[in-house]
Simulated scan of single mutants.
Amino acid sequence: MEFVLVAGAWLGSWAWDEVVPELRAVGHGVHPLTLSGLADKQGIKAGQQTHVQDILDEIERHDLRNVILVGHSYSGIPVGQAAERIGDRLSHVVFVDSNVPANGESFVSAWPSGRPMVEALIAENNGFWPPLTAPDFAGQGLTDEQITRIVTGSTPHPGATLTEPAILTRPLSDLPATYIKCLLDGDEPNPDVAALLASPHWHLIKMDTGHWPMVSQPRELARILLDTATHSAR
């Protein structure tokens, strides 16, 4: 299997540093990806479809087959769209406590009450969503050292990726998918995710940790991903 790992808002490929060795140790290909405009790709102008294309380009560049696409948080939106577009190259898609795309809807569409706040922050910060600060990570199962790692590694997130609509050509429920719900960030999936979980192609796994499990519980997350690879290969 070939894992393509995409972290959420403000983060780069570095967020997967403790997950990658666990997957490679048993022989899988692993491709942690930084999306345009973030981390080591700061300065690259990006909208949401840019991020979808980043994922497609990574798969095409390495001619990947038997792909397990993994999207965390915001990145579930471009990952879900990319998963539809790679056809029989896709083995499985894993959404890690993430948003999921809906045709014609954006990241902020799912935040009826928070949308004005996010859009105002983007406007005030030259088109970028500013990263969280250390107090925002309280109660998410992270040590002080882990919080510092996330805060110091985070970069402003391109605002257009949050406000542009997703483009889907078929129901997301048709994809072979796993949704990982991190319980410290809420006991139940959002209603849009719950509706998708009614599909026989989707299943739910819960983790007793916060919204950043690749940092708080990397080995446990890797174990779930490895189990997914095993089941997908059958």
Rank of each mutant, 00 (worst) to 15 (best):
F3H: 12
L5D: 09
A7Q: 15
G8R: 13
W10V: 07
D17M: 11
V20C: 13
H31F: 07
P32A: 06
A39P: 06
K41G: 06
Q49G: 00
V52N: 07
D54M: 09
D54C: 12
D57R: 13
D57C: 04
D57F: 04
E58L: 06
E60Y: 02
R61Y: 07
D63I: 00
V70L: 10
H72G: 12
P78Y: 11
R85K: 15
R85N: 07
D88K: 12
L90S: 01
S91Q: 13
H92D: 06
V93F: 08
V94Y: 07
V96H: 02
N99M: 15
V100W: 10
A102I: 02
A102Q: 14
S106W: 08
V108F: 03
S109E: 07
W111K: 10
R115N: 02
R115W: 03
E119H: 04
A120C: 03
E124V: 00
N125R: 08
N125P: 11
N126I: 00
P131A: 13
L132F: 10
A138C: 03
G139A: 09
G141F: 05
D144N: 13
I147Q: 01
R149D: 08
R149H: 08
V151E: 12
V151R: 14
T161S: 14
E164D: 14
P165I: 01
P171R: 06
S173N: 00
S173E: 09
L175I: 01
Y179W: 00
P189G: 03
L196I: 02
L196G: 03
H203G: 03
K206T: 08
T209S: 04
H211Y: 05
M214R: 02
Q217I: 01
L221F: 06
L226D: 14
A229E: 12
S232G: 15
